[in-house]
Design a protein around this nucleic acid. Sequence first.
DNA 1: CGGGATCCCTTAGGATACTG
DNA 2: CAGTATCCTAAGGGATCCCG
Lengths: 218, 218
Amino acid sequence: MAAREYGQYCGITRALELVGERWALLIVRDLLVGPRRYSELAGGLPRVPSNILSTRLKELQEAGLIRRVPHSRVIVYELTPYGAELEPVVLALGAWGFKAMGDPRAEQVITPDSMTMALRTAFRPQVAAQLPATAYEARLGPAELLVRVDGPSLAVTRSDVTLGDGPVDLAFAAGPDIRRLISGELAPARAIETGVVEVLRGRRELLDRFADTFHLAA
Amino acid sequence: MAAREYGQYCGITRALELVGERWALLIVRDLLVGPRRYSELAGGLPRVPSNILSTRLKELQEAGLIRRVPHSRVIVYELTPYGAELEPVVLALGAWGFKAMGDPRAEQVITPDSMTMALRTAFRPQVAAQLPATAYEARLGPAELLVRVDGPSLAVTRSDVTLGDGPVDLAFAAGPDIRRLISGELAPARAIETGVVEVLRGRRELLDRFADTFHLAA
DNA sequence: CGGGATCCCTTAGGATACTG
DNA sequence: CAGTATCCTAAGGGATCCCG
C-alpha cells in the first residue's frame, strides 16, 4: 500500500487521500472561482513553494479532479466535474473556519479568490430570493469584486477584469473587519459610523441588504 | 508566523490549519460517533502511530475541538460543541469520497465508527420521514450495528454493546459490496440473490426500505 | 515572462520499543 | 491503559535556475 494511504475502506478516508495533502484544497478553492493559470495560482497562494504547487497540480490531475487545458499559448487549470463537486466540502470548511478566524495578523494576506469563496460561503439564497436584485461593488483590501445578487443566485467577479455593465447599486470599501459585519457582530449602520465600511457610491441603507444577504453566525 | 500556517486571512485556510493535518479529521470522524478512549481511537485507526495520535490529540485539544475527560479511572476524549460542528464537513467529505471508493483492497480495514459515519452520510431524513419507523441490525464486516430509523431521525449504535431492546425488523450481514446497494448500482433483490447481502432475520422486502433510506448517488 | 525543474535543508510523519 | 522516547524516512519549504 502506498505510504500515504490510510488503509481503511471509507469514503472520508478516500476523500482525504485525494485532497488531504497540504495546499490541495486551497488550489481547489481558487479553481472553484474559475480556471486559473499556474502563475495565477501561485499568486493566490503566496506561500506555496513552486515545487509543491507543481506536485499538487500533477496529483490532482492524476486523481481526475483538475484538467490542464492549453488555451492558445497559455495553459490553464480547471476543475473537472468531479473536482467541482468539492464545492460543498470547501464551503462547509469555510463556514466552520470562519468562526475561528479571529483578527487578521499583519502577515496574513487577502486574495480575491479567497474573498469570493468567502462571499459564496456566507450567501443565503433563501434570504436573497426575497430581496430585489442588487449589484454591489466591494473593495476588500486587494480584492475588487463585483457582486451580483439576483433572486437566489449569486455571481461574484473581479471588477477589475469585468467589463462595466451598468452601474452598481452600492459600492463600498472595507478591510478585514467586514467579517464582523458578516457575523452580525457589527450592525451595518455602526460599521459605517466606525469606518469599518466606507460607502463610495449608492444608498448606504443598501448595506443592510448586503448584511442580510451575506450572513454567517459566529 | 508558524511554519505550518498558510498566511491567509480566510476561513477555509483557518479550518485547514486546525484540522488539515494528517489523521486529524479521522480522529474527529470517530469522535463524532461518541466519546472514545485513547486505545479505542488507536483501534479505530490501526495505521496511526501512537506518537502521531498523541500529538494530534494535544493539538486538537489546544485548538478547543476536543476535551480530555477523566471518567472514573479512565480517560475519554470527546468533542467540544465547536468540534462537533465539524459534522457537516465530515459528511460532505464522506459523500464526495464515496464516489471514488472503488473496490476494497485486501489491506483495507472496515471499522465500526467509519461505517457508522458512512450510514449517517447516506441517510436521507426526508425520505425516512415518509416511512415507518424501522430497526435494522447490520453486520458489516467487523461492525455490528444497530440502526434505528424513526421518522427523520437516525441512531446508530454498536449492537454488541447495546442492551437488546426489542427485536429488530430486519437483520442482515453484508461485506464491503454494500456500497453498491447504497449507490443504487445493485437492486436490493439482486443483492440478496447474489449473496452480497444475507438476510438473517426479518422480512427481506425490508431491504428495499433500507436501500431507500440510505442512498448516495455514485 | 510563463511554467515549471533542481538543489538543499528543515521538520513532520512513521515504525518500533519502552515506561508510569 | 495511556501514552513517551527514539530513530529514520519522506514530505514540505525556500531559493535558485532553466527552457520555450
